[in-house]
Amino acid sequence: MTKNQTFSDFTDSLGILKGAFKARIRAAFKENDIPLTTEMLQVMRVLWKKDGVKQQEIADAISKDKVSIVYLLDNMTKRGFLERREDIADRRNKIIILTAEGKKMRSIVEPLLNELMADAVRNVSKDDLAKATGIFQTIIKTLQEG
């Protein structure tokens, strides 16, 4: 097998992994009556790390285009998880802020995610995960450099 074929298998496996993990998250959310989609979870995780960021920063962090992020944020605003505020420095920009309900979701969701992650890697050593992470970071850096 060539290096290119191996890389193709690698990227296929990443897609399968992502889909399988998202399916586990969806099932756990349904079982626990958590009113979030996996896309909403991505937004929440960005805001849990740093609340009060520009809409475009969220779009970049979760790799969504402008139209998709607007629809997603509208939905999350209607559900009471976040609010949009005008950026004082540039009124064209919107600052996204978690509401009390959005902040509360963290204490519900993060323990569940930690359980799911622990289960997903129960047959993988910490060293192997660290090596895999290093490989991912090297490939990402190479792709971003162009």
Score class of each variant (00 low, 15 high):
K64V: 06
E31V: 06
I34E: 05
G102C: 11
A89Q: 12
E39D: 14
S107M: 10
P35R: 09
V70E: 13
K103F: 06
N93Y: 05
K66D: 09
M76E: 10
T38A: 08
K54I: 04
T77C: 09
M44P: 06
I69V: 15
Y71F: 07
T99D: 08
E83Q: 09
D74L: 05
V43L: 07
G102W: 11
L72A: 08
M44C: 13
Q55K: 12
E101Y: 03
E86W: 01
Q42Y: 07
V53T: 05
D51M: 02
Q55P: 05
R45W: 02
M76W: 08
I62R: 04
L47K: 06
K30I: 11
Q56V: 10
N32S: 14
I96W: 02
V109R: 00
D60K: 12
S68N: 13
K49W: 03
D87K: 00
L98F: 07
N75S: 15
M40A: 12
K54S: 02
S63T: 09
I88C: 08
S63M: 10
K94S: 11
S107V: 14
A61N: 10
L41K: 03
G102N: 11
V109F: 04
D90W: 00
Y71C: 00
K54T: 02
T37Y: 06
I62T: 09
V67W: 04
V46N: 02
L36P: 00
E86G: 04
I62K: 03
M40Q: 12
I108N: 12
N93V: 08
R79Y: 15
K94V: 02
D51K: 01
I88A: 15
R84S: 15
I108C: 10
A59D: 00
E101I: 04
D87V: 07
A100F: 08
K64Q: 12
E101K: 13
A61P: 03
E110H: 11
I69P: 01
D60W: 08
I95F: 06
R45T: 13
